[in-house]
Nucleic acid binder design. Sequence first.
DNA 1: ATCGATGCAAAAACTTTGCATCGGT
DNA 2: ACCGATGCAAAGTTTTTGCATCGAT
Lengths: 158, 158
Amino acid sequence: MPSQPPPAATPGFAPPLCAIFRRFLKEQGLKFTTERAVILDAVLNRAGVFEADELIDDLKQSHPQHRVSKATVYRTLKHLIEAGIITEVLLDSTRAHYQLTYGQPDVGHLVQADGDAFVVTEFPTGELNDFIRRVCDEHGVSAVSHRLVIYTTRAEDA
Amino acid sequence: MPSQPPPAATPGFAPPLCAIFRRFLKEQGLKFTTERAVILDAVLNRAGVFEADELIDDLKQSHPQHRVSKATVYRTLKHLIEAGIITEVLLDSTRAHYQLTYGQPDVGHLVQADGDAFVVTEFPTGELNDFIRRVCDEHGVSAVSHRLVIYTTRAEDA
DNA sequence: ATCGATGCAAAAACTTTGCATCGGT
DNA sequence: ACCGATGCAAAGTTTTTGCATCGAT
């Protein structure tokens, strides 16, 4: 649940997320540490959906000089969500998945189970905005975010 | 991930789910035990989304004569999902939620966080079927199921 | 009588937390 | 110098599993 709504998309151009994160942290009286910089960097180098464990592995590889603990990764992921930079994506109930969403267009996820892993494909959900707005209006609420996940099989298996 | 697609909706009339579950179990070479009957009964008496723990509590109240272990509840929930009777609903990453979906029209979930609990309201998503079919066609897959969750705040808080 | 199902308690997987120390500001 | 952040390991949650026994077919 992000505290600030993510701003409009800026396609084809990476916004200065590091500066955005710094500003967020300052506003909250929190510090911009080396660990947080390194974690944000790893997040930005991830395409699509990722898990905490994958990020931790990435950090071991990309920043071997600076070991970051698991606890710090989890703590920082929470701040990144609060800052509106990443979003939790719920694909299954056994672990959390995350995705960079700041400045990105809304996407849904097509999921194909592949043993215990997933093949996840994104698709745009901009067309759904009217529908979502209508549903929220009918219930007297405003949408903060939404998630559409479609579980699939290859067409021939159905 | 249900192994059989749920059949068409039968509004206003409860289908003989017990018989359906028995048939499913027999087909799989599994047994219809007292515990499974009691658990299905508790599921049918639950409106909307529920958690495993809530079901376990319900069982203590409604069937005090027949204690059912936590392990059996989890094992049976899996079978009910396989049978296409209930579906996992993913609202947050800390625990699984379930819902009776056999013979029910497709619904999405409007979620309002309320501390560590959720207020969940359902809404019909029949209108989305064309969109979903189109997305799947473009990717050469068929939809097995889908979930739309809208996270909200009261309109005035936005 | 067979073979799956149950209960219990232990294990597993993921995430959070307490505490002493480190390091931004 | 202050006060938040980190790392570690321990604790917490939810869900799963091993094993001896029970019970449906």
